[in-house]
Design a protein around this nucleic acid. Structure first.
Lengths: 253, 253
DNA sequence: CGCACGGTTGACACGACTCAATTGCTGTGG
DNA sequence: CCACAGCAATTGAGTCGTGTCAACCGTGCG
């Protein structure tokens, strides 16, 4: 786990192996390692965007601040590309906060541009990653719009569990989670108090337990309760292999 | 307005002119015109995705159906690329419904792939469009999570107004809107009854009026009320010109 | 004519928020 | 070593926003 993009690559390749040549294009992306402590802002809303950030370790959240309150619009964990989309935007509309000690790899936009120009496969892999992000946003929209606090919470926990599992951070149905209840409430569009009371329903039902980590104790019941289906996360068996084939056929550079 | 992609191109070019050569790549995308009546499903959730759809006229919504209810996760109007993201996915997690008589242009994934392989500028324009989509999803998430019914509604109306304006469909602060109150409620995560009652607050305040269209009567008050800032829609002055320059510099095919 | 559908209204129940206070934990300094 | 501050978690009480149920109206259309 020495290369800064190893985890990202591993996530990408869960969807299908990349040819050696294209993997190299990705792994040679030049960048800079940075470390942040819990509470640090990696960037603020309206900052000019100059880098794409790849998570090496730790945990961050993207937060959009409105006059009505703070909304966490996404979480990111090791292996995620955080601000990939920024490379076509001039600035961001939200800030990025470290929720625990975090290491990340900062790649200048120009370097990303070069890489996608060099390899159609890398291009598609990165593009796909931004599209998966978008799918997650849609799911959150549906989650906030249609589900009650209890189901909404269950859904988030199951999503997090699936994503942590995909990067090998789940042991014994338990994953580390540096988020405070305030953070989780901000992600779910709930008040802190109501979040807490709802959480205790899940705990008393023996469905989950929390310490500084979260344990899924009765997965089936949770899934039943909220109707979770992780397909939208596109963690596996995607079409990357088809895409690789298509790219080969169209004979792109 | 005879070419099916004219409106889409116009929207793209609000962000910056494309070079003639790249515009041609886009305009030569082969596809098929289709017409749909109000209520038709253009595709269903879990259908295999084979086309990218460009809106020519009319209005459609993307609907995610959960056991808890239906959530409209996006609206699309003339000039929008609806399922662009699908070209890297094998299937969709939501369905697409026509809310009024609709004309659209269906382009096979392979053709889109060819186009983005031929032109880095077209690639970036399309990619950017999917990223703007994602920015809108984030904004909806924040809207649903943090704002009360009244402000949430105001925000949606202002977003729609801005987007309709961008494609020249606003006359006199009024735009056509074939949505029923049920539809709008599904987009806002509100019950029909509560939507209706909240709408009447806006009407009685003289802020908006509705017929089969929506009129923004007191824009300033609405903006104040919900803190609307349309920057996330990226309708204008984006970095496409910089991007074109960057593509030129890196000498891509 | 009558039905279906969209819109409107009132009454009531319940989910969620706010306010306020308390506990427990951790780190810090005297 | 203890006192204390600060933060996260917890709890209770009361209010308010929103959902549900149910009915009714108007219009367009078969």
């Amino acid at each position: 786990m020495s290369h800064p993009l190893e985890r990202f690559l591993a996530k990408i390749e869960r969807r299908g192996k990349l040819p050696e040549r294209d993997r190299e294009v990705l792994l040679r992306l030049p960048g800079e390692r940075r470390a942040h402590a819990a509470g640090d802002l990696l960037f603020k809303a309206d900052d000019p965007a100059k880098f794409c950030i790849f998570m090496i370790s730790g945990f961050v959240s993207r937060v959009r601040t409105l006059s009505a309150g703070r909304q966490i619009v996404a979480f990111h964990l090791p292996g995620d590309a955080v601000d990939l989309q920024s490379f076509l935007f001039s600035k961001t509309d939200h800030s990025l906060e470290a929720n625990g000690a975090t290491e990340s790899y900062w790649v200048e936009h120009a370097a990303v541009r070069d890489a996608v120009n060099q390899s159609a496969i890398v291009r598609d892999a990165l593009w796909l990653d931004t599209l998966v992000d978008a799918a997650v946003f849609r799911e959150w929209t549906a989650n906030l719009g249609q589900r009650r606090a209890l189901q909404r919470m269950s859904h988030l926990f199951l999503e997090m569990s699936a994503r942590f599992r995909a990067v090998g951070l789940v042991r014994n149905e338990t994953f580390p989670c540096p988020l405070t209840q305030t953070n989780l409430a901000e992600a779910l569009g709930l008040s802190l108090v109501h979040f807490n009371k709802t959480l205790q329903i899940l705990r008393k039902g023996g469905l989950i337990s929390t310490a500084h980590s979260i344990s899924i104790l009765k997965r089936e019941e949770l899934v039943q309760m909220c109707g979770f289906d992780g397909a939208y996360l596109h963690l596996d068996q995607s079409r990357v292999e088809d895409i690789v084939a298509a790219d080969r056929d169209s004979g792109s550079a």
